[in-house]
Design a protein around this nucleic acid. Structure first.
Lengths: 384, 384
DNA sequence: GCAATTATGGGCGGTAATAGCAAAACTATT
DNA sequence: AATAGTTTTGCTATTACCGCCCATAATTGC
């Protein structure tokens, strides 16, 4: 390591503090970074000229402290944009956000499940064009894109998908979408992204958890280990096969969030009935709980995560499912400490996860801002 | 980060290269560390005076290169000692090694399974005293100790053990052993340490694997994720309960390595017979394989590790078990890429793991050698 | 013994960190 | 309105350490 690298790291550290926190004065930054004031001064100079940071007017507080007012520095969340795309068999859901992941606009397009690959990609391209147009965002100011898809996303970017989505298997989605943008494009499995999304709200707090994502087609597990998404060999982690215990008749409730699924209406009716305490409907919930229990138990024993989080359709019925699960698990040898709870983001999990992945993937560049190998197309005047 | 810290890191990096590799010249170190020769020179000066490194005579090579011969520097593996202790219900197995984990001496003591805690600790103390005496190692030159034990080792150091070993549950083994030494003492579950031992031979190569450790009493799994041991919440990861599928009659072969276990002789006979191709004995192996298959399948699907490694008694019969497992797994939906193989260390896995943990736990101090917060009691003249 | 080659050791310059001090900007008091 | 008190700021000085360069030392091959 030489001086330049040291400076890089200190600048990255400082920028990271500003990114994660609110506008800060030199004194605050000094406390949090441990750097000397003079060093911070120079770093902030650099960050300001490169466009990552602006000096903001001193916030008017109720009680003004004595002494010369400190300057306040803020991360420029508006310096660039990120894009999240959630692909499902029957729809495309695109979201554009700023660097703080505050949503600037969304666009949802429905399409026939049988749509072939070329057509699907054309629709995606069109969808993004319209979305960016709507929000008045230049394509060049998009600095990261993440796409969620069902199926296993292999290390080489190709997709290994058991069923659905014509032409999807063995095809490099990241390459295809990569052509639409001049920035890094990442593709990841939807359950894994949903897990990543859940991490957003609990960063650093819960280090290890398993996110169980259920939708009408299958169960997928996203594992976060040591506060990082775990992909497994060739992205295959979490593709659990509970088919033995997981009889199809128990999956009724899984069709809850998929409007195109055949059992959708029935599932909604059952859930509504169960919430009024109707015994037959409650029994249906118990069947689902019993179908999930062996798998959840084995995850808990093997990994002993801090939490097991229910998401997707399972998350939509957490109020019913969790009590049922707790009693179902009692029949097994339930591991002591692992908590079971529902997702916080509901049907936004995946999009949140995509945005999160954008930010994380920027990470090194984002927080390695000066003289980065591929500097971001950051314009100091952008967004002013 | 300031200049001092930068120097620390560079020194640590250099020392790490020397630790992992063979004696190196300045030119080699320059290539591997990326530092300038001048900087290395100063760092090696420091490392030599602190006793971590010695200049060794230029090795006589077949073809002498022209030019002034380069000085050669080597890590002083003999600068200190580490101790590994493997505790089992019926024995204590202590090993003392140098910093390269080359064994200097071993001592194995048998004791009745019913021995109570105080007596057991007294025997351990005595065992270590004798071992160090045998090898002529001063207690003060021991810089790290790792103890393996059955049962879950919780984050606070206390042990949560379902059965065996009187007085073991809820008691802080690390504190008790800590009193015997003036250096950090770590305690860890035996299956986890065996996994760590396996990592020794394949460092950096295989990042993620599950180590399935079977002995006469139970099955434990040690998970290595991102090249690091994964402990789970309160150390509870890997305490799988395969009791449902894992009928007791299938565990015959598990008594293979435990001389005190009732089925030990019978198990050896069965294995010998199976190796001659005797059908009834082979059938016994197949029963074990079928008992293991569901659990292994679920690990493979959930984690998709690069390898699943069979250790303990399972490793002792790998020649028989792996073919049987492969065909048993074929009946399930066997995940593609995860390799299944036997342990390389046999009954030395746990001790190897303990030594490994010693070195890793030294890690930060070991490779942060100058002005470490708790400097190691390193004597530059020691071992000369 | 001499040229060629390679390693060593120390001086020099540059970068970036810390430390310290006087000036600036603001509040509170008289 | 002037002044005292407080806190931030701008700047210079000092220090640590990395990289570069060049003279010198040690060895081989002719």
């Amino acid at each position: 390591m030489d001086h330049t690298e040291m400076r890089q790291r200190n600048a990255a550290e400082t920028l990271g503090i500003l990114y994660r926190g609110s506008p800060a004065t030199m004194a605050t930054l000094q406390r949090e970074s441990g750097l000397s004031r003079r060093t911070l001064e120079l770093i902030l100079d650099d960050l300001t000229t490169t466009g990552w940071v602006t000096e903001v007017p001193v916030p008017a507080r109720d009680v003004r402290p004595v002494g010369r007012p400190a300057r306040s520095f803020a991360f420029r969340y508006d310096a660039a944009c990120i894009v999240a795309v959630q692909l499902e068999a029957g729809q495309i859901h695109a979201t554009v956000a700023d660097l703080a992941a505050s949503v600037l606009g969304r666009l949802r397009v429905s399409l026939p499940v049988s749509t072939d690959r070329e057509e699907r990609l054309a629709l995606l391209d069109d969808c993004i064009r319209r979305l960016l147009g709507q929000c008045g965002v230049e394509r060049s100011s998009v600095v990261a894109v993440t796409v969620s898809t069902p199926g296993v996303v292999q290390d080489d970017g190709t997709i290994d998908l058991p069923m659905t989505m014509p032409g999807w298997t063995g095809f490099s989605l990241s390459e295809a979408v990569g052509k639409m943008f001049d920035c890094p494009v990442r593709v990841e499995n939807d359950a894994k992204l949903a897990a990543l999304g859940e991490k957003w709200s609990r960063d650093g707090d819960v280090q290890d958890f398993a996110y169980i994502f259920g939708d009408s087609e299958r169960i997928g597990v996203g594992l976060v280990i040591r506060n990082e998404l775990y992909r497994g060999l060739n992205g295959a982690a979490g593709e659990v096969r509970w088919s033995h215990e997981f009889a199809l008749e128990a999956t009724l409730l899984m069709h809850l969030d998929d409007e195109d699924a055949p059992g959708h209406v029935a599932a909604q009716a059952v859930v509504a009935a169960a919430r009024t305490g109707e015994p037959a409907a409650l029994h249906e919930v118990e069947r689902l709980a019993h179908a999930l229990a062996p798998g959840i138990t084995s995850i808990a024993w093997l990994l002993a995560p801090e939490e097991i989080i229910l998401g997707g359709s399972l998350g939509s019925v957490q109020d019913l499912l969790i009590p049922a699960l707790e009693s179902a698990l009692a029949e097994y040898d339930r591991p002591f400490a692992t908590k079971i709870r529902g997702s916080q983001f509901g049907d936004q999990s995946i999009v949140t996860g995509c945005l999160r992945m954008c930010v994380e993937s920027l990470g090194d560049e984002l927080f390695m801002p000066i003289a980065a190998p591929h500097p971001l197309p950051l314009n100091a005047d952008f967004g002013r």
